[in-house]
Lab assay of single mutants.
Amino acid sequence: DYYQTLGLARGASDEEIKRAYRRQALRYHPDKNKEPGAEEKFKEIAEAYDVLSDPRKREIFD
């Protein structure tokens, strides 16, 4: 679930989605986080943001 990936509730505003993405992206960015799995988590976060930030894709997902 993309909302869960970003730590959001369904119905989150565009601003909340953007804030959550930035927070998670900084936390799991491969240059900042060298833990195994961080790069994969970063890709999941980017995919979630891509879907939720686009109104058309978000409507299909919801």
Results as ranks from 00 to 15, higher is better:
residue 37 G to P: 06
residue 10 R to P: 08
residue 56 R to D: 15
residue 31 D to Y: 10
residue 10 R to E: 10
residue 50 D to V: 13
residue 32 K to F: 02
residue 27 R to P: 07
residue 56 R to E: 14
residue 36 P to L: 11
residue 6 L to M: 03
residue 47 E to L: 13
residue 57 K to M: 03
residue 11 G to R: 06
residue 10 R to I: 07
residue 6 L to E: 02
residue 58 R to S: 02
residue 24 Q to I: 12
residue 33 N to H: 13
residue 22 R to Q: 15
residue 43 K to T: 03
residue 57 K to E: 09
residue 41 K to Q: 08
residue 20 A to D: 00
residue 14 D to C: 14
residue 37 G to Y: 08
residue 52 L to K: 01
residue 27 R to T: 13
residue 12 A to K: 01
residue 46 A to C: 14
residue 38 A to R: 08
residue 31 D to M: 12
residue 39 E to K: 15
residue 16 E to G: 02
residue 2 Y to E: 01
residue 54 D to P: 01
residue 27 R to N: 14
residue 56 R to Y: 07
residue 29 H to N: 14
residue 40 E to A: 14
residue 40 E to T: 11
residue 3 Y to H: 05
residue 41 K to S: 07
residue 13 S to W: 00
residue 12 A to I: 01
residue 60 I to Y: 07
residue 14 D to I: 13
residue 50 D to F: 06
residue 46 A to L: 01
residue 36 P to C: 13
residue 60 I to R: 14
residue 59 E to H: 04
residue 27 R to E: 14
residue 37 G to L: 08
residue 28 Y to E: 05
residue 40 E to V: 15
residue 55 P to W: 07
residue 5 T to P: 05
residue 30 P to S: 14
residue 11 G to A: 04
residue 45 I to C: 12
residue 23 R to S: 15
residue 13 S to D: 08
residue 57 K to F: 00
residue 35 E to P: 04
residue 20 A to R: 03
residue 46 A to T: 15
residue 8 L to F: 00
residue 7 G to S: 09
residue 16 E to F: 00
residue 45 I to M: 11
residue 55 P to F: 03
residue 17 I to G: 00
residue 23 R to E: 13
residue 22 R to H: 12
residue 15 E to P: 06
residue 39 E to R: 14
residue 38 A to T: 12
residue 50 D to T: 14
residue 55 P to A: 11
residue 59 E to M: 05
residue 9 A to S: 08
residue 39 E to V: 14
residue 5 T to Y: 06
residue 21 Y to A: 01
residue 49 Y to A: 06
residue 48 A to Y: 02
residue 8 L to T: 07
residue 22 R to C: 07
residue 56 R to W: 08
residue 5 T to L: 11
residue 39 E to S: 13
residue 16 E to S: 08
residue 15 E to W: 06
residue 9 A to D: 04
residue 54 D to T: 12
residue 52 L to H: 01
residue 48 A to R: 00
residue 16 E to K: 04
residue 58 R to V: 03
residue 52 L to R: 01
residue 60 I to F: 07
residue 40 E to H: 11
residue 44 E to V: 05
residue 3 Y to D: 01
residue 24 Q to H: 09
residue 38 A to L: 09
residue 23 R to G: 10
residue 61 F to Y: 14
residue 16 E to N: 06
residue 8 L to A: 09
residue 32 K to C: 03
residue 46 A to I: 05
